[in-house]
């Protein structure tokens, strides 16, 4: 097995099961026979040198890689929803439903060029929520969960691009949280931020552990030490 887990886990605490996953990009194999389990309500950090397919691995958990040209995957990913494990690559499994239950935050903050409010409410719009009051409440809740409410409550209708980098990243986290996902994937979420902004996000993630299963790709070993319950090391391919 190319990856090592530092903790033993019991089957009934497992949220995500990955079995013999292979991944190719432009005919180059990036991931080889990856089999991993992720425990519910923990923060799992994925570490390792760049080029070992850590970010790619995250995209196999919400099938986002399918939108990347020249990529190919083999293997099995199962996520537990409502007590049963479901194969997320099964034909009957709704892709949009998956993306709504498995949130993702990217390396650089990527707010859309609309207002703060609309950014956070955007996933609700996609999911077809119409009730304005309900949307308003959910936006407030998500912004509070992301530690952003106090800073933006008076300027919700300003452009999201006016926010600082750290605020933008928390906005993206709020946006990912608004659909109450069960899994949250973060791809080096603090690497484009300064240390303070990074620290805020770390505390925030520790808080979020109560609500979802968090998988974070990180380059900073000190950060991993502060927040991770489990560490997985992706080694260089042989």
């Amino acid at each position: 097995m190319p990856c090592t887990t530092h903790e033993t886990m019991k089957e009934n605490h497992i949220k995500i099961k990955v079995r013999s996953l292979d991944f190719w990009y432009q005919n180059r194999q990036i991931l080889e026979h990856v089999s991993l389990d992720f425990t519910r309500h923990t923060i799992t950090a994925i570490v390792g040198p760049s080029g070992t397919g850590k970010s790619t691995f995250l995209t196999t958990l919400n099938r986002l890689w399918e939108n990347i040209p020249d990529a190919q995957m083999k293997g099995r990913v199962e996520i537990e929803f409502d007590g049963t494990f479901r194969d997320i690559y099964a034909r009957s499994f709704s892709l949009t439903q998956l993306r709504r239950s498995v949130g993702m935050v990217f390396q650089t903050p990527n707010p859309l060029s609309m207002s703060i409010y609309k950014n956070v409410a955007f996933p609700l719009k996609l999911a077809g929520y119409k009730n304005r009051k309900e949307v308003g409440n959910k936006v407030e809740k998500a912004l509070k969960q992301a530690y952003l409410w106090e800073e933006v409550k008076d300027r919700l209708h300003e452009k999201a691009s006016c926010l600082s980098g750290g605020q933008q990243q928390r906005l993206c986290i709020a946006r990912a949280l608004i659909l109450e996902p069960e899994v949250l994937l973060l791809d080096e979420p603090t690497s484009s931020l300064d240390q303070n902004a990074g620290r805020i996000i770390e505390t925030l993630l520790l808080d979020l552990r109560e609500r979802c299963t968090i998988i974070i790709v990180s380059h900073y070993l000190d950060q991993v030490g502060r927040i991770a319950d489990t560490v997985m090391e992706f080694p260089l391919k042989s």
Binding site: L98, R99, P123, L126
Partner: peptide, 16 residues
């Protein structure tokens, strides 16, 4: 590519 993936990661369909 980042802009392309943003909404997809939030559960948007292709047309959305």
């Amino acid at each position: 590519a980042r802009t392309r993936l943003t909404a997809l990661a939030l559960g948007a369909t292709r047309f959305q």
